[in-house]
Structure formats: C-alpha cells, structure tokens
C-alpha cells in the first residue's frame, strides 16, 4: 500500500496531538461540568455516534474496554472491529477482532490475527471498521419485544431491561446488524447501551474514551456548535444497511460498499 499525500494528511492529523481527537474527548466533559451539578434530564438530548473508519488502527482497545466496563460475558461482545481485505482479483476477506477469541488464543486481548491466507503482495486494499449497536431511530428490535423489556429511552438510546426480559430471543432475531445476544449469565437479551450509565454522568462511552485515534466519536448533537453537531451538519455520512429503513444513529465517515 502506497501512502499518498491525502492519506498522509489524514494520519498526520491523528498523530499530531491536540487535533480533532482531544477536542472531541472533551466535548462531553465540558457539558459534564454543568450538567453534573444539576440533575440529569431525560429531555433535550440528541446523541449521535460517529465512526471514522479511516482512523481505526485495529488495536482492539475498544472491545477490551467495553468488555471490562459492561462485564460482557466470555464468548460475546457488545462492540467489535472488522477488517476488510480486498485482493487484487477482487475477492473480499473479512475477519474480526473476535476471531482470535474464537480460536481460544490470548483470550483477553482481542487482537487481529496475521492474515495468512493472502500474500501481502496480493492485497489491493484493506481497512478496519468498528461496529456497535446503531441505536436506530426506528429500531426493529423494540416493537417485537412481547413484554416491553427493550425500549427506546426518551433520549433515543435503545436499552434492555434485564429484570423484566424473559429471554425469548425475539429481539435478537429482529436485529439486522447482529448486535444483540443472549447473555448466558442473566439469560436475557443484552446489547451495547452506548454506555448509558456513563453518558448520563457526562462521561463518554468506554470505547470512545479509550480509542487512541479518535476513530470513535460520541456526543450530544442537541448542543449547538458542539463538534458532533458540526460533523453531523458538514460531513458526508453513511449508515449501515440503509435498505432496512432503521435510521441508525451511528454514522460512518467513509463506508465502502462491501461493508454489510
């Protein structure tokens, strides 16, 4: 892979500190000071998550920190990173941080494996892509729940109620993104909550907090002029599986068509 000037500039921005990244990291922090003093209000938030896949370096820190923060049981993840490798003949090979776990190696680490099946000279393009719950504005998982144990909070965060869910798995089937799973410890549906317990305290989701390159950004677009609001207004954004009409609130900067 040759590094052209555009690429260089892009990565220069992640290497040069005090660029976009630390700014976005403080974006919630700034509101935290004010809102932590008052009681958190369920009204007036418009959270959005932006994934800049061009910045992802595939270190897997997001997956590790998420598993720690949310005590995700072994064998499952609430967020993961995929790697898309395109060969010169046009074949697309996909693997994820999770595959290493699946092979029971270095269980705690969630690294990417060496891609042995393809010689380096054959690769024409390769990139990482973080995935997590899209917190759809029109979530297919919520209306199917027979008992009302999964719901959209007033802020639009899709949450589950492990104390009311009876574990039928209907919502897991309804999700086109495969982000839900049945927690083998609680026997209820489980999923990414955007670290709801953190964001209501003015903190960032654990995966955003830990991301060393700013590939994951999160914020409240209801705050006028906040970096996330600016990105939402100005950047070219994409969502996953637009054909399902789910209106995700996780936006991707640059999304290749081979991503599903």
């Amino acid at each position: 892979m040759r590094v052209n000037r555009r690429d260089f500039l892009r990565y220069a921005c992640l290497i040069v500190p005090a660029g976009v990244v630390p700014l976005s990291r403080r974006l919630i922090g700034a509101t935290a000071e004010s809102s932590a003093k008052q009681k958190y209000s369920l009204e007036g938030h418009k959270y959005a998550f932006i994934v800049d896949s061009t910045r992802c370096i595939g270190c897997g820190e997001c997956v590790r920190s998420c598993n720690m923060e949310n005590k995700v049981p072994e064998g499952f993840v609430r967020t993961w990173v995929e790697r898309y490798t395109t060969t010169k003949s046009g074949k697309v090979i996909v693997d994820s941080t999770y595959d290493v776990w699946r092979q029971r190696k270095k269980a705690e680490r969630f690294n990417f494996e060496e891609l042995k099946s393809v010689p380096a000279a054959d690769i024409s393009k390769a990139f990482f892509l973080p995935k997590l719950c899209n917190h759809c504005a029109n979530p297919p998982c919520v209306p199917v729940c027979p008992v009302g144990a999964t719901y959209q909070s007033p802020e639009g965060v899709v949450l589950t109620d492990p104390n009311y869910c009876f574990g039928c798995g209907y919502c897991i089937q309804a999700c086109p993104y495969g982000v839900r799973f049945k927690n083998p410890i609680t026997h209820t549906a489980d999923k990414c909550t955007w670290c709801y317990h953190r964001i209501v305290k003015g903190l960032l989701p654990a995966c955003v907090e830990i991301c060393p390159t700013g590939a994951r950004q999160f914020g409240d677009a209801a705050i006028a002029g906040s970096p996330i609001a600016q990105v939402l207004e100005s950047a070219k954004l994409h969502v996953l599986r637009k054909d399902f009409g789910t209106n995700p609130k996780v936006y991707y900067i640059e999304l290749n068509p081979e991503v599903r």
Partner: peptide, 28 residues
C-alpha cells in the same frame, strides 16, 4: 416456549404487559 425462555418464571409478563406491535404478545 417455556423451556426455551431464559426466565420461564416471567412467562406471564406476556399476558400482563403485552406489546401491541409484537406478534408474539398477540399470540399469547
């Protein structure tokens, strides 16, 4: 269905708080 449920003891939730848009709740 009861055998399959993660929490069969909460099975009656489907009758007590049925969600109108869920085919499973209507089935109950």
């Amino acid at each position: 269905l009861l055998v399959h449920l993660g929490h069969p003891e909460r099975a009656f939730n489907i009758m007590f708080t049925p969600s109108i848009r869920s085919a499973m709740a209507t089935f109950g």
